[in-house]
Computed example of a mutant assay.
Amino acid sequence: MSASLSSARSRAALRVSARISVELLLVLVMTAVVLWLLGQMWSVVWPLVLGLLLTTLTWPPTRFLLRRGWRPAPAASLVTVLFLVVAAAVVALIAVPVASQSGDLSDGVVAGLHKVRDWAAGPPLNVGEDQISSALDNAVERIQKSAGSITTTVVTGVNTVVNGLVTAVLALFLMFFFLKDGPRFLPWLTRQLPGRLAVHVPAVASRSWDTLGSFVRSQAAVGLLDAVFIGIGLWIVDVPLVLPLAVLTFVSAFVPIVGALFAGFVAVLIALVSNGLTDALIVLAIIVAVQQLEGNVFQPIIQSRGLGLHAAVILLAVTLGGNLAGVVGSLLAVPVAAVFAVFWNYLREQLAEPPGEPGGGEPQADAAVPS
């Protein structure tokens, strides 16, 4: 005999479901509003983000000078000048040649896709033309629109903004001030916030900064090693467009998983079109070997700690970022997801029950705050 449903419990369950639904709806609305505001202020947000990313790269030498007794202003000035010199050298030696060859790179990828389509239509696969034409045509269209800009967007750093020069200057000035006044920011922020916010916000900001800096510096080092080794392999096989492909490999390293697959796919297509199937297979073997070397040797040595993100989360974040903001969104997706993970982990620490007190009492607000 089956038991009848309790009307009281059913109403209580519906009330709880309704309350949770309303709360989730409010969270989604607030998220949409924040994203809309960021979009409206993007001309200011983008230089700020770019300045923060540059600061993560230039902070180690600045910290070295500060520990040697330098004052903050001279140390930040010297590092900023050295950064400008290095950036000018990169633009003169790498960015300009890469930009001049980006069109050839795009044309080579398109030709490679057509060659793959012709090969798939013949034996032994005999794939019908209508089965692959639509997907390949969409891929060709996307590559023709964006493949050339994938390298130049990040090499110049400002192509997504109408006035790129102003963005670059703002980012450099912000980098200088972050380097000079960065150590004083958290104490200042602590004094400005009331109550528990004075503890929690600086703690989350400090953890987010450590995570962001670790990600940017480690990905830059790993990407540089990948670009050098793969570039040498492409040069030995005599594949054209070695410099743009090496730069593409370096830039793609900042988009974990997806970036490596994309850069390797482009290199194999270029080798297939220019050198034939044998050299394309050799290039594929080189890329697989370098990726294995990176995953088993480079990253464990360079990365002291991971981002704490599952591969599926990274893939979803990159996909969402690319849909929302194109190439820039793909590049920023993983750092943003890592910062959200830091916030979520800190929130879980604050809401966790104190040891030895299962289910009892309110969590202590300062229990997990680092000293």
Rank of each mutant, 00 (worst) to 15 (best):
M1K: 13
A3W: 09
A3E: 05
S6W: 08
A13E: 13
L14Y: 03
S17T: 12
I20E: 11
I20H: 10
E23W: 01
E23M: 08
L24A: 14
L25C: 11
V27R: 15
L28P: 13
T31K: 13
T31I: 15
A32S: 04
V33P: 12
V34T: 14
L35R: 12
M41K: 11
M41T: 10
W46D: 07
P47R: 02
T55V: 14
T55L: 02
L57R: 08
W59L: 05
F64E: 04
G69V: 03
A75G: 01
V79H: 02
L82G: 15
L84G: 12
V91T: 10
A92K: 14
P97S: 07
A99P: 01
S100C: 04
G103T: 15
D104Y: 01
S106D: 01
G108H: 07
G108C: 05
L113H: 05
P123E: 15
D130S: 13
D130R: 08
Q131R: 07
S133D: 12
S133H: 06
L136F: 13
D137W: 06
R142I: 12
R142Q: 10
S146W: 14
T151A: 03
N159Y: 08
V162E: 13
N163S: 14
T167N: 04
A168V: 12
L170H: 02
A171T: 00
L172P: 01
M175Q: 09
F176E: 00
K180V: 08
D181N: 08
L186A: 04
P187K: 04
P187S: 07
T190D: 13
L193S: 10
R207Y: 01
D210C: 10
S218A: 09
S218I: 01
S218E: 04
Q219P: 03
A220S: 14
L224K: 02
A227R: 05
F229C: 07
G231S: 11
V237D: 01
P240K: 03
I257R: 03
V266I: 14
A267Q: 05
A271K: 05
A280M: 06
L281N: 05
A285V: 10
I286L: 07
V290G: 01
Q291W: 06
E294V: 01
N296I: 06
F298Y: 10
L309H: 00
A311N: 14
V318S: 03
V318H: 04
L324P: 05
V328C: 10
V328W: 02
A338L: 05
F340V: 10
V342G: 05
R348A: 09
A352R: 06
E353Q: 11
P355E: 09
G356V: 01
E362H: 08
A368G: 08
